[in-house]
Structures are given as structure tokens and as C-alpha cells.
């Protein structure tokens, strides 16, 4: 019970930290990190809720978290490639403005 409680609270706190980062931290890459941290918090809450000390854990949250981890990395990659594209367009635009 205590173990579940520790990790549930930790998951919610991670979610809060991620939300803070998403809103407050100015840099875009760290905003992507923040979304990932929020995701980790949600996963932790889910797994802690399915944890059954001394017995068989609930496999359904485990399966959902597995799916979530893979989707999260796919989303991160999509966000990163969008950021890279935007950054390169910006750089090209700046170059054109500097040397027309």
C-alpha cells in the first residue's frame, strides 16, 4: 500500500513538474521534454494503481503503459522533426535576410 502511494504521489508530482515546464520553460526542446515527463508521470500513476503487492499485478495497465511508451516516442520524434524543420526554415530565412 505505502509503495503504491509513494509512486502514485510521485507520478502526480511528475505530471505537475511537466506541466510547469510545458508552460513556464521558454525553450522548445525542453517543452518537448516536459511533455515526456508528464507522460512518465501518468504511466507511473497507472502502473502504481495496477500494482498488487504480494500478488499478481494487473496486466491491463502494464499493456496500456507499454503502448503509451511507444506512442510517446513516436510523438516525440514527430515533434522533434517539426522543430528541426522550423529551425532550418528560420535559419534559411535569416540567411536570406542577411544576404539578399
Amino acid at each position: 500500500m505505502t509503495q503504491d502511494l509513494i509512486y502514485s504521489v510521485c507520478g502526480i508530482a511528475l505530471f505537475g513538474i511537466g506541466l510547469y515546464g510545458l508552460i513556464i520553460v521558454p525553450h522548445i526542446l525542453q517543452k518537448i521534454l516536459a511533455v515526456n515527463i508528464m507522460g512518465v508521470g501518468v504511466f507511473m500513476l497507472l502502473v502504481a494503481a495496477g500494482h498488487n503487492p504480494g500478488g499478481v499485478s494487473d496486466p491491463v495497465p502494464h499493456a496500456m503503459v507499454l503502448t503509451g511508451i511507444v506512442v510517446a516516442v513516436a510523438g516525440t520524434a514527430l515533434a522533434l522533426s517539426l522543430v528541426c524543420r522550423i529551425g532550418e526554415l528560420q535559419r534559411d530565412g535569416a540567411d536570406e535576410e542577411a544576404a539578399p
Binding site: 509503495q3 502502473v47 502504481a48 500494482h51 503503459v65 507499454l66
Partner: peptide, 8 residues
Amino acid sequence: VRLGAVDV
């Protein structure tokens, strides 16, 4: 691992 979710 502490939470017994080895797959995860």
C-alpha cells in the same frame, strides 16, 4: 522493476 512491471 520495483512495481513488478518487468515488461514495461
